[in-house]
Design a protein around this nucleic acid. Structure first.
Length: 250
DNA sequence: ATTCTCACCTGTTAGC
DNA sequence: TGCTAACAGGTGAGAA
C-alpha cells in the first residue's frame, strides 16, 4: 500500500510519503522494512516500542509518535512508545550501519559456533549473550531462560564453558526464541503484537520474574542477582558455578 | 582493548 | 495515605 499521509516529527522520515512497503525482514532485534523503491527502513522497538495496525478511528494514545495512513485502505499504522527509546531510521550501506555491527544470528547458532564465541571472551556468559555485536537477538528475559534450561550460572566465565555445555546452551537459545516468537513474545504490561494482543510466552517463563518462587525443577527459591548490569534470575542449585570458578561479586 | 556505569524516558511499585 | 527511590523488556557514549 502506498503511504499517503504521515504524522511524524522526525524530518528524515518525511521521505516515507509516497513509499510502498514491499516486505519485512528481521535481523537480531531489528525489523527491516524493505520498500519498493529499494530503500530500507530499520526499526528497533527497544524497551517499550510497539507497532500497531488499527482502523482509522482508533483510540489515540498519549505516546503515539508516528502514524501512517495508506491509499486504498482505512487501516493505519501507529508507532507507540512510552519510553521513547525506539528508533526508526533509513538504512545506509555505510560501515556504521547498525546492522553491520551485529554478531551471529541467535536463532541460527550451533553448539560449535557458540563454543568458539565463548572461548574468545573472559566475560560472564550472560554479558556475552546480551552483547549484540557477538550474538544478535537475545534479550534479558531469554538470556536468563536459556541459561536456566542449559543449567549454566549467568556469572560463569564464558571461556570456561565446555563444548557439551555450549551445545546445550545453543539449543536452549534456539528453542526459547522459536517458542517465544511462536507465542508472540512475552508481555508483562506494555508489550503487544500489531493487533494489540499481548504476547503469550510469559506463562512459560521458568526464572525471569519468579524471584522468591520455587524452581520448577528442584523447588529451591529462585534468586535475583545483578549480572552484566541487568536483573538476573536463576536457581543456584540447578545452575551452580563450577568449583574454583573465579567468582565475581555481583 | 575490553568491560562497566550511567543516561536516555515515563510509568509503576516497593519501601518508609 | 503520601512521598521518594528503585526498577523496567535495550543500547551506546564515555569512563575506568
Amino acid at each position: 500500500m502506498v503511504i499517503n499521509h504521515l504524522r511524524v516529527r522526525e524530518p528524515r522520515l518525511q521521505r516515507l510519503r509516497g513509499e510502498t512497503f514491499d516486505h519485512f525482514e528481521r535481523r537480531g532485534k531489528f525489523i527491516i522494512a524493505r520498500m519498493r523503491s529499494g530503500a530500507q527502513l530499520l526499526i528497533h522497538l527497544r524497551m517499550s516500542g510497539r507497532i500497531l495496525i488499527r482502523d482509522k478511528d482508533y483510540r489515540k494514545g498519549k505516546h503515539d509518535h508516528l502514524r501512517l495512513t495508506f491509499a486504498g485502505t482505512d487501516k493505519v499504522l501507529i508507532f507507540r512508545d512510552l519510553r521513547k527509546f525506539g528508533r526508526w531510521e533509513w538504512a545506509s550501506s555505510r560501515s556504521d550501519s547498525p546492522l553491520k555491527k551485529l554478531g551471529i544470528e541467535a536463532t541460527e547458532t550451533t553448539g560449535r559456533i557458540l563454543f568458539n564465541l565463548l572461548q574468545e571472551s573472559r566475560r560472564p556468559v550472560k554479558a556475552l549473550l546480551l552483547d549484540q555485536t557477538q550474538i544478535a537477538g537475545i534479550g534479558n528475559i531469554y538470556a536468563d531462560e536459556a541459561l536456566y534450561r542449559s543449567r549454566i550460572h549467568p556469572l560463569q566465565l564464558s571461556h570456561t564453558i565446555d563444548l557439551r555445555k555450549a551445545s546445550l546452551l545453543a539449543s536452549a537459545i534456539r528453542q526459547i526464541l522459536r517458542s517465544a516468537i511462536d507465542k508472540m513474545g512475552t508481555t508483562f504490561d506494555t508489550y503487544s503484537g500489531v493487533n494489540g494482543s499481548p504476547g503469550r510466552f510469559a506463562r512459560y517463563l521458568k526464572v525471569y520474574g519468579r524471584e522468591g518462587l520455587d524452581c520448577r525443577r528442584c523447588g529451591t527459591a529462585i534468586v535475583k542477582i545483578r549480572a552484566a548490569g541487568r536483573g538476573t534470575h536463576l536457581c543456584t542449585r540447578c545452575q551452580p558455578l563450577p568449583r574454583n570458578h573465579q567468582r565475581k561479586v555481583a
